[in-house]
């Protein structure tokens, strides 16, 4: 069974380790915060200028001056801090943030990512994504394996304008966990009940399958 967005987020949450500062992108990545183990210390950074982000406020307690990068009202946790945009990107560019989790429209087997523009159709802008992917040591992409037409988004080469080159290390989709290296996608885990063949069929890029591929655990 292919994973839904919440289960993708839950699987990615296992990659979040004790002591990490983590930047979560908009969409599935935002859900990751709901599944991080409670016995580890993690701080979430939002590039609009907050470290130590907490859950959404209770009704009536929302503050227009306290939002995340998705412009949603949020709260802060004890130990949180606010800062300006240049400082925020010093944290990112300076590699002080340990893990970046973001969405993508396409990834390619050499680690390129495209997620900001569909020429002639959708031009929303890259926001902080180009800075994040150019600098983060550890980038995990959360995405659907195929588009609505069933076409693979895990490609030999991206077709859309790039956000960054050679930067993606790991991809978690509704079907699989993939490691990106040696100009290929290495299959690490399968979604429960999804066969290697199904993953192979949904992957346009080179897929390397070595030995028995375990099912994901959560």
């Amino acid at each position: 069974m292919a994973l839904d967005k919440n289960l993708i987020a839950k699987r990615i949450a296992k990659e979040v380790k004790n002591g990490y500062y983590v930047n979560l992108g908009i969409g599935i990545p935002t859900l990751v915060a709901n599944y991080v183990r409670e016995d580890i210390e993690v701080e979430f950074q939002s590039e609009n200028g907050v470290l130590g982000m907490g859950p959404f406020p209770f009704e009536g307690e929302e503050d227009a001056d306290i939002i995340n990068a998705g412009k949603q009202t949020i709260t802060t946790l004890p130990g949180a801090s606010f800062f300006d945009s240049a400082t925020s990107f010093s944290m990112i560019r300076g590699k002080h943030v340990h893990l970046t989790i973001l969405g993508a429209m396409e990834v390619s087997q050499n680690g390129d990512i495209a997620n900001w523009k569909i020429p002639g159709k959708m031009v929303k802008g890259m926001g902080g994504a180009m800075d994040l992917v150019a600098s983060a040591e550890n980038i995990i992409v959360a995405m659907m394996h195929t588009n609505k037409e069933g076409e693979s988004k895990i490609l030999k080469q991206c077709t859309l304008p790039l956000t960054g080159v050679g930067c993606v290390k790991k991809v978690v989709t509704n079907l699989a966990v993939l490691e990106v290296k040696n100009n290929a996608f290495y299959l690490l885990e399968r979604a429960p009940g999804v066969s290697v063949e199904e993953i192979q069929n949904a992957t346009e890029g080179t897929l390397i399958v070595e030995g028995e591929i375990p099912e994901m655990s959560f």
């Binding site: 859950p55 406020p57 209770f58 009704e59 009536g60 227009a64 939002i67 412009k71 949603q72 009202t73």
Partner: peptide, 9 residues
């Protein structure tokens, strides 16, 4: 506020 997101009391 652009995106009003809240938890239930």
């Amino acid at each position: 506020i652009e995106q009003r997101t809240v938890r239930k009391n």
